[in-house]
Design a protein around this nucleic acid. Structure first.
Lengths: 344, 344
DNA sequence: TATTTTCGTGCAATCGATTACATTTTACAG
DNA sequence: CTGTAAAATGTAATCGATTGCACGAAAATA
């Protein structure tokens, strides 16, 4: 590294003190116009750049914010991060990204590393509902570092979160399928220990019950968000005595797998079986048989999460801010669930 | 923030010096076993955590690496970042992400901010070939911060880069189309000022010339990587007296748009017109009419870029390391370009 | 026992910027 | 021309960890 000029270098050159230089650079009103201008000029000449590390050490603020997500290369999380990054960058913060790969241990490790790096806040989407019970998790609270959950949250008192209304989403999707004439609706669910999946499931259940349809345990299949699991789920469903005529998948990838398997069995979509996915991954729109899905406005979610953080970090009162922002999901009806000849 | 324990706290408690504590914690051989164990024990008791900021200030190393990309919410860049992140995290580095949105000014701003934050290195995919001519860009060199380009590079002496062989990719794709019987091959090109797009174009040109096909300027259309531009390009191509029978798009999104437009015109793919995209975006695989494309192994690219950085940063000699890694692209032949009844 | 090594610690400077408090300089009234 | 308040600048501690040098004590050697 080349040697950088410090305020001391400027001070020496001008035969004044570093303190004066610092004040001049920070527009302190205690400095005479003459000195201020001289300092600013010299600083420019000497290519002075403030060392943020020194500042961070002194102030205890790193201006870095940690973001923890299961993985970055999914459109949803990448978009959320994009929103976060855009909002925070504009406010002088940097975003440090960590991936958990849904591994609880890595998640804990990530938290530790971020805290050691003196981040000013942590924005995260948890991998596992029990993570917050971990001892290390408590370091966040002990250090009083602002913590904000987005999407996959744990329900902790005093912790803000930004989510979508997954219950409503599940309800809407199911209602839509019923309106399309489906009477036997299956649900591909995720890890029910995570609120998001549980709420989607509860919304689904509520909707069918509201419509007087009996809940059938066999129609609910727990899967991971993969194409493979979607295919397997359909295999199971088709082997039932009474297979479903509609599928609500809580994952676009699984919905895709489901569609592949249905086609392989010559089942017509949406006529024989209608299907709706979740997350509005780009491919759902582009397919020939476009997939109905739920949009979670991830970029907006990221921006809001960022703003909740900013609010909290700028809050000088002792008062604790707890915000639970719930976004409204948007059902995108596409070919996979829209029957043309429906006569209502 | 809660108050953190420092080495001074430990020192006071044990009635020794901070220096000794520091040495004990760092396993200095100069410290007696007794003291070392006592310190380590007490540190654990008092929940001591090293303040990385102080360390960074002292050592001049932040252990942060900046990554600059046009945008994060594209599968390619997200995957590269994933690779970078995984590799660097394992080596104690954090990744700070910046997006340029292909805006040169933002790019310059990003560089400045990262340098101010004292990053130990910058890994970037440039938005514009001329960026490096900017004055601010020189700060990187002045500070002697390791710089590594990936994918979209500028050709600067002494700067390492990790790219794929875009020429070869263009050549392979075009050759493949010719083998499928195409004789009039169009090319949807990107910003030719960027090496990657220029090289793909050159590969394309070389291939058709090697096969004795005459180069036709009308078949080359400059576009942005959007579905919209893909559609418009096809409109233009179809309006030619002699429309093409094959299309090599340097973007998957444009290829998608092209396909949509072709279908709207009842043109059969791949029989009437074969088409190949670029980047292996997830949707290309999932579509009913899967799109042939070129895989750039982005995760690997990220990992390699990270390793080149590590090599450079750990290089204590004065010797300058300049590495130009070129990965081999993989042509993925799918339905959009594979004619079934081909009789070679 | 005297002398030399070796070992373990302490002292104090350093990284770069900020800031409460002290001191000096300036300005202005009397 | 002097006294005093106001303005401008200096002094020095602080943030937390590292490290070259020095010093004292114990161990090894003569």
């Amino acid at each position: 590294m080349g040697k950088k000029t410090t305020i001391y270098d400027i001070a020496k050159k001008l035969e004044i003190t570093a303190a004066t230089v610092s004040r001049a650079l920070n527009n302190s009103p205690k400095i005479s116009k003459k000195t201020r201008e001289l300092v600013l000029e010299t600083a420019k000449e000497m290519n002075y750049e403030q060392n943020k590390l020194a500042l961070a050490l002194k102030s205890g603020k790193s201006n870095n914010v940690g973001v923890i997500v299961p993985r970055i290369d999914s459109n949803f999380f990448a978009s959320v991060i994009r929103g976060i990054e855009e909002e925070l960058f504009a406010n002088g913060y940097h975003v440090i990204i960590c991936q958990t790969h849904n591994d609880e241990n890595i998640e804990i490790e990530n938290i530790n590393t971020l805290l050691n790096a003196q981040v000013d806040g942590v924005l995260m989407s948890i991998s596992n509902v029990d993570v917050y019970k971990n001892k290390s998790f408590n370091r966040i609270f002990k250090k009083q570092v602002p913590l904000i959950f987005f999407d996959r949250k744990a329900n902790i008192e005093g912790v803000s979160s930004v989510t979508i209304n997954d219950f409503e989403a599940g309800y809407k999707v199911t209602k839509h399928l019923i309106e399309q004439g489906c009477k036997k609706i299956a649900h591909l669910s995720g890890n029910i220990l995570l609120e998001i999946f549980n709420n989607r499931f509860l919304g689904y259940k509520q909707a069918i019950e509201d419509e007087g349809i009996e809940f059938n345990e066999d129609y609910v299949i727990r899967i991971n968000s993969t194409v493979e699991d979607g295919r397997n789920a359909v295999k199971k469903l088709l082997s039932l005595k009474n297979p479903p005529d509609g599928i609500f998948s809580s994952s676009d990838y699984a919905a895709l797998g489901a569609i592949q398997e249905l086609k392989a069995n010559n089942i017509k979509i949406p006529d024989d079986i209608s299907i709706v996915g979740f997350a509005n991954e780009p491919f759902t729109k582009f397919m020939e048989l476009s997939i109905s899905t739920v949009d979670q406005s991830p970029v907006e979610m990221g921006k809001i999460a960022a703003n909740v953080f900013l609010e909290q970090v700028n809050n000088t009162d002792k008062s604790k801010i707890e915000k639970k922002v719930v976004l409204t999901p948007e059902l995108l009806i596409r070919k996979s669930s829209l029957k043309k000849d429906i006569t209502k």
